[in-house]
Amino acid sequence: MPTGQPLPDARNVLLQAGRRVLAAQGPGALNSRAVTASSGVAKGVLHRHFTDFDDYLGALVAEEARRIESIEPLVADSASAAVTDVLEQIFTPTMLGLASIVLSREGLRRRLRRDESPEVPLFAEATSVVADVLAAEREVGWIAEDADIPALALILVGSAHLLYVSAGEAQPAHDAIDRIVQWTLP
């Protein structure tokens, strides 16, 4: 795009470019040059809208956290079906790529933490969503009344993350995720 041309909604254009880079090339390829090349803008445009690259990554993570927080089960005929569905919605290639970046960049993690919390961004939101689903399932009697919802949510999110990471480029089979969920739920 020529210099001097106004770019409507430049922040969104840049954030979508980052998502494209993550999807096509993975987290190792996500840098300011790749983002500006993918969006077709000069590097200065990125720095006009974000103080530095960590600020840009923080915006991408915040956008992904909002997506995760809005997840609700699409399938709800059993506790395991609902939780499996939610986990499959949480662990997208974009989330996994951003999670890898967050885990490897301490400075970014510090910026993103709320109130000096030790929680890891994206995983905290994922755990909260899974805990909400488990609590709702406990209300309808699908999960034992004395179930430790916070612990179950942590176990499920951690186990699913390991399953997705070990699957690499291929997504784990639905049955593999469902087996973990069924094994974990009381």
Rank of each mutant, 00 (worst) to 15 (best):
V129E: 02
V157N: 02
A82M: 06
G107R: 11
E139P: 05
D55F: 01
G168Y: 14
E145M: 14
P150M: 10
A65T: 06
P186N: 12
W183A: 14
E145Q: 15
K43C: 11
A82I: 04
R114W: 13
E139C: 07
E63D: 13
L57M: 09
I90R: 00
A76Q: 11
A62W: 00
I149V: 11
I155L: 15
D148P: 08
D52M: 06
A173I: 14
E169W: 09
L74D: 15
F53I: 04
R114D: 15
A136R: 06
R105K: 12
D52L: 08
L154S: 14
R114E: 14
I180W: 10
E137S: 10
V75I: 15
H161A: 11
A136E: 05
A42R: 10
P172S: 11
A126M: 00
E88R: 13
Q171N: 12
D115S: 12
R179P: 07
A62I: 04
A135V: 08
S117V: 03
R67Q: 05
R67G: 02
D146Q: 14
A62F: 02
E125I: 03
D132S: 11
L103W: 02
V75N: 14
E69W: 02
K43L: 15
M95I: 12
V41H: 03
A42G: 11
R67A: 05
T92G: 05
G168W: 13
E139K: 10
E72W: 08
H49G: 03
G44S: 12
